[in-house]
Design a protein around this nucleic acid. Structure first.
Lengths: 152, 152
DNA sequence: ACAGTCCGTGGACGCCATCGACCTCAACCT
DNA sequence: AGGTTGAGGTCGATGGCGTCCACGGACTGT
């Protein structure tokens, strides 16, 4: 994990579809060398996936909500997690310090679907209460912060 | 935006580095046809970017925080937004309904850096107060939910 | 000094991206 | 009805790219 690796990570966070040849030009190595480095970053768990970032409204997911979850005393946290995992609307799930054990980011098509999701969440065993906030607009999301040394 | 487009979006959300030839095989079209469709999805604002998803701890960003922002009465929301925008640690920024106008997701290397970020946030004009929750662990993040019709 | 290891380069080969020419079908106009 | 037009597809060609392999130079431990 040296400066070149950080550089590659930065480049791929900016544009995951760059060719190995282009990456090679940017970092000053040959294409096979870059190919091997990126392969190691992938298998070493640094690069988890490559995803297209989509404007959610355009695919019918216009409603974004952030939902805090308070657990029952004595709830089995793993069971609760598993219940959340099978709900595809829950795009992100953070285990938090504080009264609310989880913070979820959910994306649905309509307010009615959000209501149904909240009902389902309140019904799942181990969940004491939920507190949901609606995002009126997403200013930006998952902006990659540069991590490479300045003089690359 | 037909079923094939939704299918392509799904495939690219799952793996942004799929070749056009592979996409073509999956959706049953020729590679040039897929190339043109994806180009239109990009220029039409459906696909915003392609990003490598990185395990944050491996690049020195081990601390994740979610920060609610209450604005001063009479604050200029655009100015506040602009102040947030230049802080690279703020990876996501949602404009919310409720007392807290914004919810920010920030990622830093250490608790000390988080402290400095919170101080800076509290100092920015228009910000009345902040409330920050620390994520002890990220169970998952930006999981793409399938949006294509079932029998594709 | 020497062997082993790591990490790189260069060459080769088959697949892929991408362009242009052509085809098909449906909508629309006369 | 028939002709025209345009969107969106296929096919074929070509140049660049991904990827495998053999080889080479620098560091390390003995």
């Amino acid at each position: 994990m040296d400066a070149i690796d950080l550089n590659l990570v930065d480049l791929l966070r900016g544009n995951a579809r760059l060719s190995y040849a282009e990456l090679a030009r940017q970092v000053g190595l040959s294409a096979p060398a870059v190919h091997e480095r990126v392969g190691k970053l992938e298998s070493g768990g640094v690069i988890r996936a490559y995803r297209a970032e989509v404007e959610p409204e355009t695919i019918g997911l216009g409603v974004t909500a952030l939902i805090g979850i308070v657990e029952d005393s004595g709830a089995d946290t793993d069971d609760v997690l598993e219940a959340f995992r099978v709900m595809p609307e829950i795009e992100s799930c953070y285990f938090m310090a504080g009264v609310e054990s989880f913070l979820l980011k959910a994306r649905v098509g309509t307010i009615a679907e959000l209501e149904q999701l909240i009902v389902r969440l309140n019904r799942t065993p181990g969940v004491a209460s939920t507190r949901t906030g609606i995002a009126l607009s997403t200013k930006w999301e998952n902006r990659p912060q540069s991590v490479a040394p300045p003089t690359a």
